[in-house]
Design a protein around this nucleic acid. Structure first.
Lengths: 222, 222
DNA sequence: TCGAAGAGGATCCTATAGGATCTACCGCGT
DNA sequence: ACGCGGTAGATCCTATAGGATCCTCTTCGA
């Protein structure tokens, strides 16, 4: 009687399943997504599939064409990726500075715990890669949360940056450097040094993108 | 044969209908929203209602409680309103500066046209009030669009600030001043003066909020 | 008088069916 | 050979039905 705490809402499971299909490229970018087809494959009725796709649409992972069905969005272009990081550079350094000034005891503890639990992926296994990206997503979201502004946190969250970047799967083997930069940001926040936190976050994003992700993406263009 | 171009997508109409119900307080803030009940009232089946509510959820106008239905979100508290305008102050001055530097011929023409078409509401009629709020929403969205960043435009749009502020309906009779400030912003953008545009937008938001909207809201608390 | 267990009603969730629309293929005419 | 109209299939959209869950009111016992 202890175990069954999973909520019996099928639409959530369907939502996760479709998201996984898109992220792992089991549904190609730009391909059409049949509602009835998905329902058959997943063994459910079209109704929850329809609702799940409506949610995915707000995450920009699919687009709806009335009377013609849904279609997966294409991968981010270089311009869109530039735009995404420009937005992150507008939001996140600000959030880091605010977090340094406003985070309470509880928030600081959570930040320290997140850093302590994060291991640099010392091998190239897929599992280690996924574990680091999960930490990456949690860390940046936590900083946004500690800034104390729901609007900023939501705006940041609704970019779904980790989903889109994960679809590109171009950022392997960057764990140790990023982790060190995360620690630098965390130290500044814990020291209540707003200026240092802002600078560290800005530096982290610029190095991550212009120094690592973007060159990899640009050379991988086809 | 010319007229009937309305798309036969019922869910869009349902979405607009429900949004109107919430905005006009025909469904009280915090009240429960029955799926079947709405379907009966609107004369449609629950399926499109369900999909429309899923969309409204991303606009924060309703929240879903699994197995318990949907509920309208309460009106924005003063803290949330502060937070909303803090976010606008982070985004919109930046967008105005970028718009001044990047807007093309087409964009400038659209901006000029929007200003030319906007009349200051010289009377206190409801129609004039609604016309001004419509211009207000279009103007700020246009500036965000002219900044040339989809991420910023979407982040701004997804706040649905005009929906939430309209629910408060506390900002009557501010048309002429706001319109003059809009014109100042527009002039700076059209003159390609990024610094002036940024300053004008910041001044406009601060005056609108701290000088007009917030005092009205604060005195109207119950 | 207060608290708890049970029955009734309403609601949500999922599945299935029918009508409307779009896409693809095939045959015909120029 | 090329373009156009018609038909068949698949898909989407909406409506309806049944099973499961939650809320509320009533009733019983301490």
């Amino acid at each position: 009687m202890g175990a069954p705490l999973r909520r019996p809402v099928l639409v959530d499971d369907v939502h996760e399943a479709i998201k996984a299909l898109i992220m792992d490229h089991r549904i190609a970018p730009g391909a059409r997504v049949s509602i009835d087809g998905l329902a058959r494959d997943l063994g459910v009725s079209p109704t929850p599939v329809r609702e799940a796709l409506a949610r995915l649409e707000s995450a920009q992972l699919v687009v709806k064409e009335p009377l013609r069905g849904y279609r997966t969005t294409p991968l981010l272009t270089l311009d869109q990726l530039d735009d995404l990081y420009q937005f992150r550079l507008l939001i996140e350094p600000w959030a880091a500075a605010r977090a340094a000034g406003r985070a309470g005891e509880d928030g600081r503890a959570r930040l320290a715990a997140e850093l302590a639990a994060a291991d640099a992926p010392d091998d190239d296994t897929y599992a280690a890669y996924r574990a680091f990206t999960a930490h990456d997503a949690r860390f940046h979201l936590l900083v946004a949360e500690l800034a104390g502004s729901d609007q900023v946190r939501q705006a940041f969250q609704r970019t779904h940056w980790h989903l889109h970047i994960y679809r590109l799967h171009y950022d392997r083997g960057i764990g140790p450097k990023a982790l060190a930069e995360h620690r630098k940001i965390s130290d500044a926040v814990l020291a209540c040094d707003a200026a240092a936190a802002e600078a560290a976050m800005r530096e982290h994003l610029e190095r991550s993108y212009y120094g690592r992700l973007r060159p990899t993406y640009a050379e991988g263009d086809r």
